[in-house]
Computed example of a mutant assay.
Amino acid sequence: MTVFEQRRQALKESLRVRGLPALLVSHAANRWYLSGFELADSQCNESAGWLVITAHGGDTLLTDPRFEEAARRVWSDEIVIYSSRKMEVVGAFLKSLNPPALGFEPRSLCVRDYERLREFVALTPTEGLVEDLRVIKDADEIRRMEASCVLNERVMLALPERLVPGMTEAQASWEVERLFREGGASGLAFPTIVGAGVNAALPHAEPGQDRLPAQGLVLVDAGGRLDAYCSDQTRTFWLGSEPSDRFRHVLALVREAQRRAIEYIRPGAPIAESYHLVRRFFEEHGVADRFTHGLGHGVGLETHEAPSLSSQSRDVFRPGMVVTVEPGLYWPDWGGVRWEHMVLVTEDGCRVL
């Protein structure tokens, strides 16, 4: 049994427990996780295909002729090919299954397709059935993520010599992508964030024509995709001679908050508490209002996936989770500092990747 078949078997068990006869998988990363077919869709209004996973029977891949050969290379079960009359073909197939209801993924099925599908079959919304499986990485996934993280670290270590005062943020972003590509990445995990000076106060700054300072800070948040799996790291650099006292102070606060959070992570520990302990630390130093986002998130086939290291989390850390720990402090009139590590939860604690 392949790893993809094993994952489908685990999903089938989950469907049986919930009394669902089948699930329509429309989210691209979930599709690949269960089949090895097409990790990403070309754009938000197109799909390379869907999967129908049944609780007790066979499974089916639905795709169009452009992807038929690619599908047959990785999928040995039934394949349904549709063309311009997609919903008629898909609908007829679903109707032939005659399930009392079909589970679907609300986050990745557009309203138009939802309305058409309801003409053929009753639909039941589900939440996180495949994502719950993806939260815990197996040994092979961890190996891939370690390699992806090693490449990311090499990129970050190379950046101080590549970030030249006077170059634009956009040029710096291109240098980041070049380093990832030259290192073997199939692409970026997400658009690189580069914020120079006050732009570093924007947690998701878009690189533009502002220039890197001769003396000042530059925040870089970047990740690559290697062997299907993502990495995600942030560093805040100082360009010029001696960092300012303010930069040193803010960086020290951020790094200490991160250290405390990582020290806390262990199996069974409530995830929300990792956020709260960082916030309490910042409150003690009078800067909690400058900490404006969650502490981190899961990483895997996607850059942002479960679990969320937020105050609202009801989950606990479990072995095999891979999460980011990325506290940050931001001032619109000065800039910001963020520092991010990827962390694997182990059987007896955690390990920084």
Rank of each mutant, 00 (worst) to 15 (best):
P100D: 11
L109W: 01
L159W: 02
L163V: 09
V130S: 07
I262V: 15
A22R: 01
S241E: 15
V74K: 08
E256G: 09
R181S: 11
I265M: 15
A228Q: 14
E13T: 14
A257E: 03
T346M: 10
A172G: 01
P267D: 03
F291A: 13
V345C: 09
P270I: 09
M1I: 11
M167D: 10
K86L: 12
V176K: 08
R266G: 10
E115L: 15
V218I: 10
V111C: 13
Q171N: 00
V111P: 09
A92D: 14
E105N: 03
L102F: 03
V52N: 00
E46D: 11
R225P: 01
I81V: 15
L61M: 06
V121Y: 05
S76I: 06
A71P: 06
L117T: 06
V164G: 02
G349T: 08
D221Q: 04
H285L: 01
R134L: 12
H293V: 05
G224V: 02
Q312H: 11
D227P: 01
L109T: 05
R116I: 02
I265A: 07
L23W: 00
S148C: 05
G103V: 06
V135S: 02
Q9E: 12
L344E: 10
H27D: 10
A28F: 00
A147Q: 13
G224D: 04
G294H: 12
L94V: 04
C44K: 08
G36R: 03
H285P: 00
G57W: 01
S26V: 15
G91K: 08
D59M: 02
T236V: 06
L295R: 06
L301P: 03
N152Q: 09
D41E: 07
E340Q: 13
R118N: 12
F282C: 05
A252F: 00
P106I: 08
G183W: 07
M87L: 15
P21D: 02
A55F: 05
G335D: 05
A189D: 04
S14T: 14
A272H: 14
Y264G: 10
R181V: 12
G57H: 08
C350P: 06
P267A: 03
S35C: 06
I262T: 10
D77E: 15
R178Q: 14
F237A: 09
F67M: 13
F247M: 04
F237D: 02
K86F: 08
E284V: 08
C230R: 11
V220K: 08
V155Y: 03
E161A: 14
E69P: 00
R211I: 07
H297R: 13
A172I: 05
Y33N: 11
F120Y: 15
P160I: 06
V52G: 03
A189S: 14
G208F: 00
S148N: 01
N45Q: 07
E146Y: 09
V322R: 08
G223K: 07
F180G: 05
W75A: 09
T168L: 01
H293M: 12
W174L: 15
K12M: 13
D333A: 15
I53P: 05
Y330N: 13
H297V: 11
P270H: 08
Q312I: 03
F237W: 06
H304K: 13
F37I: 04
A71H: 07
T54Q: 12
L295C: 04
G183Q: 04
I136T: 13
E131C: 01
C149S: 15
A261T: 01
A269E: 10
R162N: 03
G184S: 07
V52I: 11
